[in-house]
Amino acid sequence: MTITAPSPSAELVFERTDELSTAGHEQVVFCRDEASGLRAIIALHDTRLGPALGGTRFYPYASESAALTDVLRLSQGMTHKAAAAGIALGGGKAVIIGDPATTKTPDLLRAYGRFVDTLSGRYFTAADVGTTAEDLDVVATTTSYVVGTNSGSGDSGFSTAYGVFSAMRAAAEHRWGPEGLRGRTVGVEGIGKVGTHLVSLLLDAGARVSVADPSADSVARLVGRHPEVAVLASVRDAALDVYAPCALGATLTPASVAALQAAVVCGAANNQLLDSSVAGLLQGREITWVPDYVANAGGLIQVGGEIWKRSPEEVRAEVGTIADTVRTILDRSAAGGRSPLDVAAEVVAERLAAAPAREARG
């Protein structure tokens, strides 16, 4: 087991030229295990509020540089997510480079767990794209700093979906009044383990739902359960009231924002904006956007609850408070003429500034 530095040609941590150059990550660990083929990066962004918690993404990145950029962005997002949710956790994330369908093995997962263990509780890992509760069961054989296993709270897909639904309902009430989502058309992009739960919650709330997903099998399963759902090639430019990005990020670009017909954007995907300037474009078109790290914090709240031994009822109640945070952000945004992104960052900064000093936390 060795720790390696990135190649000289890679986009590094401290000498970047993008928005991450001022992100201030505390620690970035490059992990390599020759025997299992593991190549992973663990990034700790900010631990002022508590130990870092974030999922492990297993993905076939085109390069180590691309993997590093992703883990830096994702870990920063986890800091924002925890602070916005008002929970005592810091921001961290990990990525494993490779195709989970072909390179994931028990040996590799155990090797990854050993690296997590070297951080001695500064980072708790969980599931993300490409990893499952079953994978975490294997990781847990070599470290105790893992949440979301089958013996823990299990898959966090429903909690994430419930948080997004709570955020979306709050945004809809802000936009259209007490009727909220009833009778509104919501386009869900991506119907994986979060999007599928979200569809069910939306239908129960009286919304009309359209979906788009490149997986024919996923679409067939969903339509089998909910034949009233409309299936579209794309929901980004469809005639919708709400666009819910629930797949990979960066779908909100200058071009896609110009094509949007939806008045509200709220979804589970991380890093929905191509860059921060897109928030201004959304505001310019008077589109109500709920920052992703606010809306999708439900899964973090669930797995974080394992650390403090919270009951499922306590977790669900806490996930529901995401709606209160959304109302605060949108009210401040409307009153001050600022984008929800700027206001959410202000809320995060306030909560981080109020954190006790590290030495005082013991």
Results as ranks from 00 to 15, higher is better:
residue 171 A to L: 03
residue 66 A to W: 02
residue 3 I to F: 15
residue 36 S to Q: 03
residue 172 A to N: 02
residue 107 D to V: 00
residue 314 E to S: 03
residue 180 G to I: 01
residue 185 T to V: 05
residue 291 P to D: 07
residue 97 I to V: 12
residue 96 I to P: 09
residue 226 H to S: 07
residue 19 E to R: 13
residue 214 P to R: 08
residue 10 A to N: 12
residue 123 Y to F: 06
residue 48 R to H: 13
residue 68 L to M: 12
residue 138 V to D: 06
residue 55 G to A: 13
residue 219 V to P: 00
residue 360 A to D: 15
residue 242 V to K: 07
residue 86 G to C: 09
residue 109 L to E: 10
residue 152 G to H: 04
residue 341 L to R: 09
residue 130 G to A: 10
residue 250 A to Q: 08
residue 248 L to I: 06
residue 3 I to H: 15
residue 223 V to R: 13
residue 13 V to D: 14
residue 140 A to Q: 11
residue 108 L to S: 04
residue 243 Y to H: 10
residue 319 V to I: 08
residue 87 I to T: 03
residue 208 R to W: 12
residue 205 A to E: 14
residue 202 L to R: 02
residue 196 T to Y: 10
residue 116 V to M: 08
residue 257 V to H: 00
residue 125 T to R: 11
residue 188 V to Q: 03
residue 319 V to E: 07
residue 345 A to F: 01
residue 156 S to A: 13
residue 274 L to M: 03
residue 210 S to M: 03
residue 34 E to L: 11
residue 297 A to V: 05
residue 228 E to V: 06
residue 209 V to T: 08
residue 227 P to Y: 06
residue 81 K to H: 13
residue 162 Y to K: 09
residue 265 V to P: 07
residue 142 T to F: 12
residue 274 L to E: 01
residue 100 P to I: 02
residue 18 D to W: 06
residue 192 G to K: 02
residue 84 A to C: 13
residue 297 A to D: 09
residue 122 R to C: 08
residue 243 Y to F: 14
residue 229 V to R: 10
residue 47 T to W: 05
residue 219 V to W: 04
residue 260 L to W: 02
residue 62 A to S: 09
residue 3 I to L: 14
residue 74 L to Y: 00
residue 139 V to Y: 01
residue 51 P to M: 09
residue 176 W to D: 08
residue 189 E to M: 07
residue 32 R to L: 01
residue 114 R to W: 12
residue 24 G to N: 11
residue 83 A to H: 04
residue 296 N to T: 06
residue 208 R to H: 15
residue 72 L to A: 00
residue 72 L to W: 00
residue 234 S to D: 15
residue 244 A to E: 06
residue 225 R to L: 13
residue 22 T to A: 15
residue 351 R to L: 05
residue 300 L to T: 09
